[in-house]
């Protein structure tokens, strides 16, 4: 009998203690964060670029991140988030990552054998990597390792390939690429891409890569005004006004290609 009383007493006492501690020392949670958290998918995939769903909710509440970064959230949920935060709902369309380089081993001249840490940034700090082109994909797969969705495949001939069906446009690969070869483009406009990233002169580029944009301007001339702009010696697609797919036939080096 005494045991029961003792146990019950202890239980009540401890419960009270916990209650008091929470009451006086507890960290009050922002109701905004709480309601944002409820809208989160809760998968903690990290696709938003933050540590997880609650981190993202916190970041949104404190203004560190914008709504709509989550690749999994539905459009309604995003709209609700915007409503809660009191910001204009961002209607920008979903994005997709593109590796703007065709320089696999068959095309880009391999200048040397790289020996060292299997990481693109590391390789770039050593003689600019083993490929002659100092703007192209290094082919060591830092982006593939950074992708939380497994959407990037490293082709055996050292070029990153993005699988459009898996890509959520989270931008992790974009951050991981030391050469900024990966670009984030609007998904609906991602029909044709210039698979080259080198602004060098054609003479320089041709020495190191067979598939480089040689700056011949054929595509820019054929396309409608403003659809393809020349960025130095590199053609670049205006994704707000993308050219028709047929434009790819004008490219002599086949670096202007349809989306894969």
């Amino acid at each position: 009998m005494i045991d029961i009383v003792m146990m019950t007493g202890t239980g009540i006492l401890l419960g009270l203690a916990i209650g008091l501690v929470v009451r006086y020392f507890g960290v009050p949670e922002d109701p905004l964060v709480e309601s944002l958290n409820e809208l989160m998918p809760g998968a903690n995939c990290g696709g938003c670029g933050l540590a997880g769903c609650s981190d993202y909710a916190n970041a949104m509440a404190t203004g560190r991140a914008k709504p709509g970064l989550c690749p999994v959230m539905s459009a309604e949920a995003v709209a609700k988030c915007c409503e809660l935060l009191g910001v204009e709902s961002d209607t920008s369309e979903p994005k997709i990552a593109v590796v703007c380089c065709s320089g696999d081993d068959n095309h880009a001249a391999k200048q040397a054998f790289y020996n060292g840490v299997n990481d693109c940034l590391n390789a770039m700090l050593v003689a600019g990597g083993a490929k002659g082109c100092t703007y192209g994909c290094l082919g060591l797969g830092s982006c593939a390792r950074a992708c939380p969705f497994g959407a990037i495949e490293m082709l055996p001939n050292h070029l990153a390939k993005i699988h459009a069906d898996l890509c959520t446009g989270c931008g992790k690969c974009y951050m991981a690429c030391p050469r900024n070869v990966i670009k984030l483009v609007p998904r609906s406009a991602a029909k044709v891409h210039v698979y080259c990233n080198s602004p060098e002169k054609a003479t320089v580029k041709k020495n190191v890569c067979k598939a480089a944009c040689i700056g011949c301007r054929k595509c820019a001339r054929t396309a409608e005004e403003g659809q393809i702009v020349m960025n130095g010696f590199l053609a670049s697609i205006n994704y707000d006004n993308p050219p028709a797919e047929e434009i790819v036939e004008t490219c002599p080096t086949k670096c202007l290609r349809k989306a894969e």
Partner: peptide, 11 residues
Amino acid sequence: LSSCLGPAGAQ
């Protein structure tokens, strides 16, 4: 006026 390869691997 052009560019050249530097020892650090950058143009």
